[in-house]
Design a protein around this nucleic acid. Sequence first.
DNA 1: GCTCTTCCCTAACAAGTGTTTGGTAGATTA
DNA 2: TAATCTACCAAACACTTGTTAGGGAAGAGC
Lengths: 210, 210
Amino acid sequence: MPKKNQQHQQKKPPVTPSPERREELLRIAADVFAEQGYNATTVRKIADAAGMLAGSLYYHFDSKESMLEEILRTFLTELWDGYDGVLSAPLGPRETLEALVTESFREIDRHRSAVAIYQKESKHLVTQTRFEYLVESQQRFEKAWLTTLERGVTEGVFRADLDIRLAYRFVRDTVWVAASWYRPGGGHSPEEIARQYLSMVLDGIAVRTT
Amino acid sequence: MPKKNQQHQQKKPPVTPSPERREELLRIAADVFAEQGYNATTVRKIADAAGMLAGSLYYHFDSKESMLEEILRTFLTELWDGYDGVLSAPLGPRETLEALVTESFREIDRHRSAVAIYQKESKHLVTQTRFEYLVESQQRFEKAWLTTLERGVTEGVFRADLDIRLAYRFVRDTVWVAASWYRPGGGHSPEEIARQYLSMVLDGIAVRTT
DNA sequence: GCTCTTCCCTAACAAGTGTTTGGTAGATTA
DNA sequence: TAATCTACCAAACACTTGTTAGGGAAGAGC
């Protein structure tokens, strides 16, 4: 990474690029990031995919890292829009879990690339102050899931003999890794996949009704 | 990547580095690869972690990519040693699945870094002819799991109403993503984690005995 | 006509990349 | 003691990286 810029500089364009073009370029960049990995993706590859030259990207964005941040931030914002709707609804623990999983698969359907990037890169990114919001989101995420699971246990709809934190990671991972193989328009709708996943997960987590 | 070497050149050292030192350096490299990602890891970082200079690595290995290949190949070789033992044993489908999962968690315990690298990088690597063995391994892997699942369905121990391929990805992913958070010596033994995971997975896959 | 704005190109930069070449301190062998 | 071998260092190499500076074509508004 050349050019050691001073870190306290985040404004850049004195010009005004159109938001539509930005979004289009971000979609392209997200696809390349997801497929090749962030570090392996050069700005020249992104520019190629967009049909322009590397330097031209800097008319719209002030750095490669800014593109990554905007991609992830947009995704997380929309994700929490959906989650907050579910969490504020008066649902039982089982219904909450079902709704969260279904919502997650819908987000995977909509932001497949962003989800893939998030999974691959978030672990390194959280150390940078610029990506602190990832940690914050992660903590809210964990809290929402753990609370739902614990509520289910005390209400007797989830098995009490399970390690809650292990179950959390189990549910979390099974849902999100789907982004690595899911292809939109591939026979299964997000809702259908959610139904199947829930069928597998719940009949292991829900209390046996004999 | 500087130096466009001719591609048909794989022998290099006219000297004889000790295998013990190689193994030690590979363990170090694997840890750095796993933590930072392959592309984000420079040979200078590996050398730093090993307490030497970048160029010195080339006394033991002929390229950074060779290190990666040797790490993954060693892991897969040991993995299939364990798997083949399980698959050749006269076990029922349920016992086979249990043994495969348990064996997988043992491998995660032993080769945590290699597993993490495999998960992050294998998707891009499979396109290179040098890493064709990854594809081959992946196919054997899929076949072993699918066969076990199908056998379980026909023998009536696994639910017949599930999409087999979805169930395969479900089981596969739930097992291997554990490498992203598992820390050896952290309270849970591999066998204990396997037991808990199997409890969650099986009671969703196994036929209800009412 | 002229001026602004939008969007991209050309051409370069400084830092970082994997890798090579030649040398050398220290142990091992003759 | 001399020769050899092991394992590393020092210094460079050719190339790639993200990024910048200046310019220009096409259109809109006056």
